Simulated scan of single mutants.
Amino acid sequence: MNSPDVAVSPDVPSPLLVERRDDRVVATLNRPDKRNAIDQATIDALHALCAELEAEPRTLVITGAGGVFASGADIAQLRERRAADALAGINANAFVRVNELPMPVIAAIDGWALGGGAELAFAADIRIGTPDAKFGNPETGLGIIPAAGATWRLKEIVGESRASELLLTGRIVDAAEALSIGLVTAVHPAADLLAEAHALADRIARNDRDATIATKRVLRAPRVDHPRVDLESQAVLFESPEKHRRMTEFLERRAKRSAE
């Protein structure tokens, strides 16, 4: 395991600590004094990490330091942004890139995931949380909309009616409700959160990487593309040596159990 990236200069801590392993990367949002508010430096670091994971696909685990996932976008920076900045999609494009990584993205959420922090969590394929996890999009109270993915990702996750209520009121969702509406798939004690994220990554790593990448890609395809996209992806996998190897091992194990 490689050591995390720890700094961008001797005096300025990196906003994103990155721990690299052969089959996964753990990225920790690291602005604890700002409750991990997502600023331009964080966005730049996410783009750099995405470029790495596009070139060398691995599962990504995203979490936050200091008992907070991310309290939102950095309001001091957001206040100064103008129309051209909105059209540039500063946060939105970074979160699209995270969402479209070839391998799965797991968000491990403790504490607040608000505004842009919630939208980063929504960009993950799998979300798990702690009992202290809280989600919300209070943007309309600040005179803006949640434009970095919540207006379309949240309804895909929890349904249009529920998403409408949450986005239009800005109401905070606690961990129990997040679990009940499918916003997270599991709730674990804070001390176990990263271990549970690694357990998910372990399960993913046991599967064939090409099949995992294909499954994620096909899951994202529009309904009109099915079943064509499924069959085309399956055709490629049917020709792979790994498919033959794994199925041969399965049949050999079954034959051995039958003979015992």
Rank of each mutant, 00 (worst) to 15 (best):
M1S: 14
D5H: 10
V6A: 13
V8K: 05
S9H: 08
P13Y: 05
S14N: 02
V18L: 10
E19H: 10
D22T: 13
D23P: 01
V25I: 15
A27E: 12
T28L: 08
L29A: 07
L29K: 06
R31F: 04
P32N: 05
R35G: 01
N36F: 03
N36W: 05
A41I: 04
T42G: 01
D44K: 04
A45H: 00
L46N: 01
A51Q: 07
E52K: 08
L53M: 08
E56C: 02
P57H: 02
R58K: 11
T59P: 02
T63Q: 12
G64W: 01
G64T: 07
S71D: 08
S71Q: 05
A73Y: 06
I75M: 09
A76I: 02
Q77G: 05
E80Y: 01
R82S: 09
R82I: 08
A88G: 08
A92P: 02
V96H: 03
V98M: 10
L101P: 07
P102M: 06
P102I: 13
P104V: 11
P104W: 15
V105R: 14
G111D: 02
A113E: 02
A113T: 10
L114Q: 07
G115N: 14
G116R: 14
G116Q: 13
D125T: 09
D125H: 13
G129K: 03
G129F: 00
G129N: 03
D132K: 13
A133N: 09
F135D: 03
E139I: 04
A147Y: 06
G149M: 04
W152I: 08
R153A: 11
R153H: 12
A163M: 04
S164T: 11
L179H: 03
L179K: 09
L179P: 02
G182Q: 12
A186N: 01
P189C: 07
A190I: 06
A191K: 10
L193T: 13
L194Q: 15
A195S: 15
E196Q: 15
H198D: 07
I204Y: 02
A205W: 04
R209C: 03
A211Q: 12
T212G: 04
T212M: 14
K216N: 01
V218K: 00
R220K: 11
R220E: 07
R223V: 04
V224K: 10
D225H: 13
D225I: 02
R228P: 00
V229Q: 03
L231V: 10
L231Y: 11
A235D: 05
V236L: 04
L237G: 00
E239R: 08
E239V: 00
S240T: 08
P241H: 12
P241D: 10
P241Q: 08
H244N: 05
E249H: 09
F250E: 12
L251P: 07
E252N: 10
R253W: 07
